[in-house]
Amino acid sequence: MIAWWQVKLSAGIERIKLEKWSDCWVIHPSINLPGLIGYFMEARYPAKRRPKYLNLLKIRQPLPAIVSILHRISGVLLFLPGIPLFLYGLQMLLQSPETFASLQSNLAHPLCKLFLLLATWFFIHHLLAGIRHLMLDLHYGMQLEQARLSSKLVLVFGAILTALTGIWLW
């Protein structure tokens, strides 16, 4: 048994072929179902109103996302300029008493100290967020509440340990 279902869409009236199977009506197999669904979506959400992309700057990011992106940013900065600066510093530290003295006088500069403190924070954040990542790999802290708590801990301990390192260095 065949019947027609009339649907009113913005583009006009669409007739959809239905077929009776024992005790219920189904959409006839000849109907292109994905096309039909697309047609309905088009009707419900006109092209102009449909979101096409997500503007990340307009969304309030959850804490785990902030920890994650800081992990990535700190990683990139530890790679460049981090590694070359680390090697340069290590070379000055070990080469000769003169280079050691010049390293000391360079590090005494307030701007340099600030830079070193920032680098310390990047390192500590990367380390702590990495430990959190390893715990997640081992399936610890997978629940939403735990994941939020651990990201809070990473941020708080990152700040505390950076402050302590700052006090210890100077």
Binding site: L93, L94, S96, P97, F100, A101
Partner: peptide
């Protein structure tokens, strides 16, 4: 603390 001590460590 000194260059010599760091050098010795490494």
């Amino acid at each position: 603390e000194s260059h010599e001590e760091f050098k010795a460590l490494f």
